[in-house]
């Protein structure tokens, strides 16, 4: 009995340490964002717990200052403007493609699917210079459409892979009986396959949204020169580059940029997890 108790205690202890390691850093940032600038540079955030109820050591000033700077609010809005159409576009393009690869007699579809999956691995760096030149030639640099198109292009391989997994797992008899009844591909896709795959579509939505919202690199390359379309990741990254005199702003700005994905995550955790699992486990 005693051995079981001790080993249980150790188990709980280890789990507690793990939980702390994963939780404390984020908690530290959150607390720091509520501390005034001069306190941040002289004492650690944990000292706030020495007098937890002395509210004067906390302040909303950091958040207020960040929000007053129009650039941060603008960046938040930009992130939304960039992310939402990217999600819609990726869905609109990936779904028919995944369906075609799964349920039509398209010649060479095995090869095509293989190619698509292979493209997941291409490092984005391979694409920047030519695509940038292309955008410049078309006059698209520094515009929102450029970012939508780029994010769609980059997100397609994984999207097709994910949706294909789901689509292909729909029982063959269902599809066959529908086509025997005279339904065309478009009807089958729109009226049967897609409604049945709503969980997968939802997962893809969440995935793509989070990926685009959190993206720094693509924005840096295609929108880096244009402040008016810069998303919030770029804005925060610039603050980090500042001399350290503005770190109190950095904490609040970082938290504001994280607030949306965090809320998304907490609300849609299940869908997100399902998406990951569908992409990585079989069936």
């Amino acid at each position: 009995m005693k051995r079981a108790f001790v080993s249980r205690a150790i188990l709980h202890g280890i789990i507690l340490l793990v939980a702390l390691f994963w939780f404390l850093p984020t908690a530290g940032l959150l607390i720091t964002s509520f501390r005034p600038a001069y306190l941040t540079s002289v004492s650690g955030w944990w000292t706030a717990f020495e007098h937890p109820f002395e509210l004067s050591q906390f302040t909303l000033k950091n958040y207020r200052e960040v929000l007053e700077q129009g650039s941060m609010v603008r960046a938040f809005v930009n992130s939304l403007i960039i992310a939402i159409p990217s999600v819609i576009l990726v869905l609109a393009v990936a779904a028919p493609a995944a369906y075609a690869l799964a349920w039509t007699d398209l010649p060479g579809r095995k090869f095509m699917y293989c190619l698509v999956v292979g493209l997941i691995i291409v490092p984005l760096q391979m694409t920047f210079i030519p695509v940038l030149k292309l955008f410049n030639a078309l006059g698209l640099s520094g515009t929102f459409p450029a970012l939508w198109l780029a994010h769609t292009g980059y997100g397609l391989p994984f999207a097709i892979y994910l949706l294909h997994n789901f689509f292909a797992s729909i029982p063959k008899d269902l599809i066959e009986s529908a086509s025997i009844d005279g339904a065309s591909h478009s009807t089958i896709m729109l009226k049967m396959v897609i409604p049945l795959s709503l969980p997968a579509l939802a997962s893809l939505c969440i995935f793509q949204f989070l990926w685009v919202w959190n993206d720094l690199l693509v924005a840096l390359i295609y929108a880096g020169g244009f402040r008016n379309v810069a998303p919030i990741t770029l804005q925060v990254a610039n603050l980090v580059g500042s001399r350290g005199q503005e770190w109190h702003l950095l904490t609040a700005a970082a938290f504001i940029s994280m607030s949306l994905p965090l809320a998304c995550f907490l609300a849609f955790q299940r869908a997100f997890v399902r998406g990951i699992l569908a992409g990585s486990l079989k069936g």
């Binding site: 609109a92 393009v93 990936a94 028919p96 493609a97 369906y99 075609a100 690869l101 039509t104 007699d105 398209l106 010649p107 095509m112 698509v116 493209l119 291409v122 391979m126 694409t127 920047f128 210079i129 030519p130 695509v131 292309l134 198109l149 780029a150 769609t152 292009g153 980059y154 397609l156 391989p157 097709i160 086509s179 065309s184 591909h185 478009s186 896709m189």
Partner: peptide, 28 residues
Amino acid sequence: MNNKLAWLYMVPAALFLGVFLIYPTFST
């Protein structure tokens, strides 16, 4: 089953992948 339609389903995806991933890789 209509193959012509099936190609149509692939075209937007093929365009995107070609423009953003395949062509740039070779170009780089």
